[in-house]
């Protein structure tokens, strides 16, 4: 099953809204989409909206880590948006909740990026 992504470019950030399941089969699509969108983009700040993600596996989590690394290398900042208890649980178990900035709404994520400067 393909993961669906919508991209919204704002002046100070790029919003990726992801829908569906992110697993070994399709996680690379997410990575490729983010890489091609951010290449030569004016801003390297990212908001990954995972509110409509039903499932994510270790491959997907690894992709998110890779995106975060690349964003940092490009002097950008990254914020995740998610509220699903199931997905949040996976972040807690793996310790990734300590690595990612996670907010429960896009508005909060935007405010977080503004706060970080």
């Amino acid at each position: 099953m393909d993961v669906k992504m919508e991209v919204k470019r704002e002046e100070d950030y790029i919003l990726f809204s992801v829908t569906g399941e992110i697993d070994l089969y399709n996680a690379k699509q997410l990575k490729d989409k983010v890489n091609t969108t951010t290449e030569n983009a004016k801003t390297q700040n990212l908001i990954l909206n995972l509110l409509e993600v039903d499932y994510i596996d270790s491959t997907g989590l690894g992709i998110l880590i890779g995106i975060k690394r690349r964003t940092s290398e490009n002097n950008g900042k990254m914020v995740l948006v998610l509220v699903s208890e199931r997905i949040s649980k996976l972040f807690e178990i793996t310790g990734l909740s300590n690595i990612f900035v996670i907010k429960s709404s896009i508005q909060e994520a935007v405010e977080e990026l503004q706060k970080q400067g």
């Binding site: 596996d57 270790s58 880590i65 178990i93």
Partner: peptide, 14 residues
């Protein structure tokens, strides 16, 4: 890989 480490952790925890 790092992903494998995450996977193992999930399996053993869940």
């Amino acid at each position: 890989s790092e992903e494998d480490g995450l996977g193992m952790l999930l399996i053993k925890t869940l």
